[in-house]
Design a protein around this nucleic acid. Structure first.
Length: 378
DNA sequence: CTAGATGATTGCTT
DNA sequence: AAGCAATCATCTAG
C-alpha cells in the first residue's frame, strides 16, 4: 500500500540506481518491460547472479509503480482463487490404509507379538493368518514383513524430509519474492498446504504399495500353507503311541494335546487335526491299521515312559473306568490282530463302545455297537 | 506317472 | 467349541 503513496512521478533526469542498464536512454515504456524481463530472467540465473539482480531490482526507480500494479492484479485474481479449498475425500482412504498397515504391523509404534488381529480373523481350527507357530515359513513371513516395514519407513522418512525441505525452500522463496511482488503470509500458508497435499498424495501411493506388498506376501503364505509337509517321524511316532495306547478313548485333553505338540514339534491344532483324521480313518478301515496298532501297543507296553493320559482318560466322561480298560484293550487288540475279522474288527469296536460316534443315535435303534462300525466303514 | 497316504479345510451336528 | 465326515491338495513310494 505504501507503494501507492508514492505516485510514479515522471522519470527524473537520472535514475538513482540503474547499475547494469545497457541502453543509455531507453524509451519510456521499455522501463517496465525491462524490469519484468529482469524478473523473469532471475529464474535462469545462478544464485549469486540472481542475488545481485534482485538487489538491483529492489532499488529500481520503477519498482514502487510495478509493485502497486501487481497489487491491483493480485487483488482481482485472489478473489477468484479464494474459496477453492483443497482436502478431498482422500483422507478417509488414507485413514483406511493407515489402519491396515497398523494392523499388519508394518506401521505403528511397535510390532505386536504375532500379528494378533490377523490371527483373530482366522478360522477356528488353525490360526489361519499365521499358520505354523514354529514353522520356518512363519519366520520367513515375519522377516519379509519386517523388510517391507523397513522399506516403508525409510521411504516415508525420505518423503517427509523432501517435503520439509521443499516447503521451507518455497516459503523462503515466497518471502523473498514478497519484496518485489505482494505475497501475503496467508498465501504462503496456502502454498505450503498445497505442497503438503501433493506430498500426501505421494505418501498415499507409498502406503498403498506397502499394503499391496503385504497382501501379496500374505496370499503367498496361504498358498505355501497348502503345500503341506508330512510330519516328522518323531511327531507321527508320538501321536500314534498316544492314539493306540488310548484306543478306548482317543481324545487327548488340552494338556495332553499341548504335551504331544511339544514332543512332536507341531502345533496343538495340528495335533487336533491329526487325531480327527486318525479317528475317522481308523474307524473307516480298522483292518488296515491293525498292524500299526500292534506295533505301537507293543512299543508302549515295552516303554512305559511315553506320553500318558495326563487326565484325559480320567477326565473322560465316556469311559469312567480308566484304570485297566487300556491294558485290557491292548490284549484285545493283540488278539484281533491274530485272528483277522472280515468285518474290520467288530470285536474291538464292541470292547470300545464306538467312541464318540454321532451315528450311534441314528443308525442303530437296537443299540448294536457292531453296526456302528459296519455303518461307518463302508 | 499313479495310487495310496496324509495334513488341512470346510460344512455340519451336538 | 469340539468333533465328525467329506473333500481337497500335496507328498511319497513303487
Amino acid at each position: 500500500m505504501d507503494a501507492q503513496q508514492r505516485p510514479s512521478h515522471p522519470s527524473p533526469p537520472q535514475p538513482p540506481s540503474a547499475p547494469r542498464r545497457p541502453p543509455p536512454s531507453p524509451p519510456p515504456d521499455s522501463d517496465t518491460a525491462d524490469v519484468l524481463q529482469q524478473i523473469m530472467a532471475i529464474t535462469d540465473q545462478s544464485l549469486d547472479e540472481a542475488q545481485a539482480r534482485k538487489h538491483a531490482l529492489n532499488c529500481h526507480r520503477m519498482k514502487p509503480a510495478l509493485f502497486s500494479v501487481l497489487c491491483e492484479i493480485k487483488e482481482k485474481t485472489v478473489l477468484s482463487i479464494r474459496g477453492v479449498q483443497d482436502e478431498g475425500p482422500s483422507s478417509a482412504q488414507l485413514r483406511r490404509l493407515d489402519n491396515m498397515l497398523l494392523a499388519e504391523g508394518v506401521s505403528g509404534p511397535e510390532r505386536r507379538g504375532r500379528g494378533a488381529p490377523a490371527a483373530a480373523a482366522a478360522g477356528p481350527a488353525t490360526p489361519g493368518g499365521c499358520p505354523n507357530d514354529n514353522g520356518l515359513e512363519h519366520s520367513d513371513y515375519r522377516a519379509r514383513l519386517s523388510h517391507i516395514g523397513q522399506i516403508y519407513h525409510s521411504e516415508l522418512e525420505k518423503y517427509e524430509q523432501a517435503c520439509r525441505e521443499f516447503t521451507t525452500h518455497v516459503a523462503s522463496l515466497l518471502r523473498e519474492q514478497s519484496r518485489i511482488r505482494p505475497v501475503s503470509p496467508e498465501e504462503i500458508q496456502r502454498t505450503v498446504r498445497v505442497i503438503h497435499a501433493k506430498f500426501n498424495g505421494i505418501q498415499m501411493q507409498l502406503k498403498q504399495s506397502a499394503c499391496e506388498a503385504v497382501m501379496a506376501l500374505r496370499s503367498g503364505l496361504l498358498d505355501a500353507r497348502r503345500k503341506r509337509q508330512n510330519f516328522s517321524k518323531q511327531a507321527t511316532e508320538v501321536l500314534n503311541e498316544y492314539f493306540y495306547s488310548h484306543l478306548s478313548n482317543p481324545y487327548p485333553s488340552e494338556e495332553a494335546k499341548e504335551e504331544l505338540a511339544r514332543k512332536g514339534g507341531i502345533t496343538v491344532s495340528q495335533v487336533s487335526n491329526w487325531f480327527g483324521n486318525k479317528r475317522i480313518r481308523y474307524k473307516k478301515n480298522m483292518r488296515k491299521f491293525q498292524q500299526e496298532s500292534t506295533i505301537y501297543t507293543a512299543k508302549t507296553a515295552a516303554d512305559p515312559t511315553e506320553v500318558r493320559a495326563q487326565g484325559s482318560q480320567a477326565g473322560c466322561p465316556s469311559t469312567p473306568a480308566s484304570g485297566s480298560s487300556g491294558e485290557a484293550l491292548t490284549t484285545l487288540q493283540a488278539l484281533t490282530s491274530l485272528q483277522p475279522c472280515p468285518e474290520g474288527g467288530s470285536l474291538l469296536s464292541q470292547a470300545r463302545g464306538g467312541w464318540q460316534v454321532k451315528q450311534m443315535s441314528t443308525t442303530s435303534p437296537a443299540g448294536d455297537p457292531g453296526s456302528v462300525i459296519s455303518a461307518a466303514s463302508n
